[in-house]
């Protein structure tokens, strides 16, 4: 009796908790609203299955618990019932997988003409690099890293000279324009994550990874590191500022290129 009641409470309590919970996604600020939709579909399907299974158990425990003289039925199997349940499960799984794969195919397909910029991780800070007037990012290698060249740009690559280098400051993005982040790490594995944008991706040394999104809401968003990277991991923060095009251009105009930066450093010495 008690056992059955507790099982009912677990099932009902879980659903009520879910419905009343104040803890939910942060309001979305990118184009990946489909991800939230897929999660919601998944919640409905899995919530139904969970409640059904637990309530069924509760009923059985209530109805078929041992009393003197009871004897269990003899029903070793039913291929038919098992097959039907298997098929129903497969349908439920497909109902979650199909939207998931559909959205994933959008995620892996970067729209033509998407602006590229680079995010560089190192213990324990975020840096950024944007293409300059020529519109291209120069090559880089950790072996070039020095006090004057914190991101390890190739000093002999002319394409890199006009690149805009942002170290220890916020990244700004224009609203409504798709952007492809090229991710690179100088030391260990990190992970670039802005919860409001939903997507995240690891940064690894020796490899350039990427993902794309379109910021859809003006605001300042916190960057977290979601790849454990040593004791400073929780402190590895940064900010992304999403703003209107003209504010963005004004910000861009104030940034320094790689060339300016190295010259200034040389002048200082």
């Amino acid at each position: 009796m008690v056992v059955a009641l507790v099982l009912v409470l677990v099932a009902v309590g879980s659903v009520v908790f879910h419905l009343l919970s104040p803890w939910w996604f942060t309001p979305i600020a990118s184009n990946w609203g489909y991800i939230d939709a897929t999660i919601n579909i998944t919640f409905w399907i899995t919530g139904f299955v969970f409640s059904a299974v637990v309530l069924f158990m509760a009923y059985c425990v209530f109805r078929f618990r041992h009393v003197d003289g009871r004897r269990a039925a003899h029903q070793p199997e039913s291929t038919r019932l098992e097959s039907w349940l298997g098929i129903a499960t497969a349908v439920g799984v497909a109902a979650m997988l199909a939207p998931g794969l559909f959205v994933w195919s959008q995620f892996v397909t970067v729209p033509a003409g998407t602006a590229e910029l680079e995010v560089v991780g190192q213990q324990w800070q975020w840096s950024f690099r944007l293409p300059g007037k020529q519109g291209r990012l120069g090559t880089s290698d950790p072996q070039y890293v020095s006090a004057d060249n914190p991101l390890g740009l190739n000093p002999n690559d002319p394409k890199g000279r006009d690149n805009i280098v942002i170290v220890g400051d916020d990244l700004h993005l224009p609203i409504g324009k798709p952007v492809k982040l090229l991710l690179r790490s100088l030391d260990v594995v990190h992970d670039f994550w802005v919860p409001e944008f939903r997507a995240k991706m690891d940064l690894l040394p020796g490899l350039v990874t990427y993902f794309w999104f379109t910021p859809t809401k003006v605001g300042t968003y916190e960057i977290l590191c979601a790849g454990f990277c040593g004791i400073g991991h929780p402190q590895m923060r940064g900010s992304v500022v999403v703003e209107e095009e003209n504010a963005y251009q004004a910000w861009l105009g104030k940034q320094q290129t790689f060339e300016q930066l190295t010259k200034k450093q040389l002048a200082k010495k």
Binding site: S14, F25, W32, Y34, I35, T38, I39, T42, I45, T46, V49, F50, V93, M96, L97, G100, L101, V103, W104, F107, D191, W193, P195, R198, A199, K200, A226, G227
Partner: peptide, 20 residues
């Protein structure tokens, strides 16, 4: 309960916000 939340994390696109 734990198996069903695996359906979230296994569904690659849902894993994007939830992983880590």
């Amino acid at each position: 309960n734990g198996g069903l939340t695996g359906l979230f994390l296994g569904n690659v696109v849902v894993d994007l916000p939830l992983s880590a």
